[in-house]
Design a protein around this nucleic acid. Structure first.
Lengths: 180, 180
DNA sequence: CTGTGATTTCTGTATATACTGAAATCGCAG
DNA sequence: CTGCGATTTCAGTATATACAGAAATCACAG
């Protein structure tokens, strides 16, 4: 299972991208390999294709499974695990967003809520205001995502396709409801 | 300029978040400190507040300036640089998005375009299709952003505020319940 | 020019993380 | 139970990156 030259370049680039976004290079490479592969691969296939230790692949696969990006499947009469990932880019994207929200954004929102209260108690109006702004911003973004993820994928794609064009369909600007 | 206990917690959390997203911890902390500070700070103020070497602050500030997140200002009769960042969270967010697009997504789109062509030339239909899907996806997302960034901030906020509610305004397309 | 404070650059070191290879564990067949 | 392939865990090592402190540079006042 030696990837072609092109596949290899893709995998290397993806690994590079991963590490820039806080994802372990090998983890990203494993995912890229599975994404390109037409059929599920064993851990050993992967180790060989990427020239990394078997144990390293094992860890990376577990990580990818925890992120719900990779699934293990089985074959009759074969005790090995076969790993695969979705080929639907939108699905992958939404999974990553979902996970990063759950693991990082939601806890951060909780912390900021607490810190805003603390700053208020400490009578630090400036700090309070800025922490609260950040808190409100993340909540807003989170709420937006929560609504979006409920939409059928086709609608989602359509919205992205429209781009700024959606403004055409909006009713004339009413004063936005400002809450405290 | 010793930050209060709450401010400190905010800064530490932000540093932690930064490193999860591929941003140097100190860089993120410096930005967090400036975000909370009511007025511009000197590099020395920052080094003291964060207990890091002056040189480290210098490097981090340069990085933040390259990202257009921090600006240097000056005061009459004072040779030192004073550094500040916007207190507008939306503005900060859009700046980060813009920069990451320019530095990472756009180059990636270019690479994927080339790789898709290569794979096609190599007669690898499966690989070609998957690289092309990824390429198309990133282009779509990029195009969407390009259109969105042209909108006035007020419209942008309004769209986020609407969330999935926008679908209510879309013409001629099957959607759950309700009619426009 | 010279001196001085501010700032940056540079080099070596520390630290966090990734990674390997070996050992331990698992799960099943015989 | 025993043996064996598959997988995971673990401990030590390697590597990449962050960081400190010293040296160099800069900018300007006198």
């Amino acid at each position: 299972m030696t990837p072609s030259k092109t596949a290899n370049e893709f995998i290397l680039h993806w690994g590079e991208m991963g590490s820039r976004w806080g994802v372990n290079r090998t983890v990203a490479q494993v995912h890229a390999l599975l994404y390109l592969s037409p059929e599920p691969l064993t851990a050993e296939d992967i180790a060989e294709a990427l020239s990394v230790a078997r144990s390293n692949v094992s860890t990376s696969l577990r990580e990818l499974q925890n992120w719900h990006l990779v699934q293990a499947t089985h074959r009759m009469g074969d005790r090995r695990d076969f790993f695969s990932t979705s080929h639907d880019v939108w699905e992958l994207f939404l999974t990553v967003i979902q996970q990063r929200l759950e693991r990082e954004i939601e806890p951060t929102i909780a912390v900021l809520g607490r810190l805003a209260a603390e700053a208020r108690a400490e009578k630090q109006p400036g700090v309070t205001a800025r922490i609260a702004s950040m808190h409100a911003f993340l909540q807003e973004l989170h709420g937006w995502y929560e609504q979006m993820k409920g939409l059928p994928p086709s609608t989602l794609r359509r919205l992205v396709g429209l781009g700024a064009g959606i403004t055409k369909w909006l009713p004339r600007h009413r004063r936005p409801k400002e809450e405290r």
